[in-house]
Design a protein around this nucleic acid. Sequence first.
DNA 1: ATTATCTATAGATCTATAGATAATGC
DNA 2: ATTATCTATAGATCTATAGATAATGC
Lengths: 200, 200
Amino acid sequence: MGRPRAERRPDSGLSPRDELLAAAAELFTTRGYAATTTRAVAERAGMRQASMYHYVSGKEELLAELLESTVTPSLAFARELLAEDMTPAEGRLWDLCRTDVELLCGGPHNLGGLYLLPEVRAERFAGFHAVRAELKDTYRQLLAATEAGGALAKSELDLRTDLVFGLIEGVILVHRSDPDRPVTAFAEATADAALRIAGI
Amino acid sequence: MGRPRAERRPDSGLSPRDELLAAAAELFTTRGYAATTTRAVAERAGMRQASMYHYVSGKEELLAELLESTVTPSLAFARELLAEDMTPAEGRLWDLCRTDVELLCGGPHNLGGLYLLPEVRAERFAGFHAVRAELKDTYRQLLAATEAGGALAKSELDLRTDLVFGLIEGVILVHRSDPDRPVTAFAEATADAALRIAGI
DNA sequence: ATTATCTATAGATCTATAGATAATGC
DNA sequence: ATTATCTATAGATCTATAGATAATGC
């Protein structure tokens, strides 16, 4: 109900809010955040610019929600893995790496690419940064639980964590310059590489 | 000569054009390209907004020039290394990785971070992409010249090149989240990691 | 009556040009 | 006379609000 839209389109199945999020995801990742106007987002979602404000307070809210949606599933999986303390840490770390690469490269738009936006550093997105820091800490803990990692001094452990985490996030850049690469094999190869960096 | 500036400042030693480039480098990397106004760039360079147009045609020209200045030195060094075909390729690859990490993390602003800007994909910056592709190809050739690399099938060689190159560029992200890390040790550790990924 | 949408627009930018001005050089 | 700079501004945005409208539900 409510006034009909000016331009009717086939039903996407998504709620208007989700249509806005999907439109924002595509535009933010391809054109950038600042370069994307509220009009562009609204129109791609099938409504007029002003109608967008019925669902969200503005662009910021869209970016904040998209950002969190990229890390939250990773963190959930990472925590599951961390809890399984009877399986060897090596295999769990490998699983985490593979899954993260698949999550980063899997979606329709390069959602991980949102993390590259300079605006993301703003205080407004502290929530995202907190979740990301937790995810990184899970990497550190898994690394420390491996046989090779258990022997490391703290500073060396931190360094390896940064290198492994950097490799995984660097995947966003690789994916950006070659979006059509088959994901599964690439995710496994990256996980292999991560373990080699970790010293396993 | 010419009319004096409205606000006098201590001489930086740089030409006005270079002051504009330096200002743009800082603002583009921290706030992003689209979010940076011509006024912000000009004013940080010590002149009024309109005066900027006496030196450059607009923001695009600044970004194009900054981008090329980040890869050109890398490529020059990479080519030197490629030519030294009596020294083992393993050591040369390590040198290239180390030097690139130092170039990416060394400067005053996170200049490598420019590469993360979504706007960089535009056709306008084809020159930069060409130079970057050449640099990546040098990585591939060095890798192929190593003992481990010589045995690889083409697709496997390409994959390892992507992983190594991804690790190096991923360093931009690591550097962004921790800009104060001592660069030299980090560059060496990253080069070590790159060789491990390469299978050496 | 409720509500999802629309149209219209005020106010705040931002870019790029036009034309004035304040130095130096000849 | 030359030139690096300035001030002023036209034209083109873009955001967010105000208020109208066209559906459905009761």
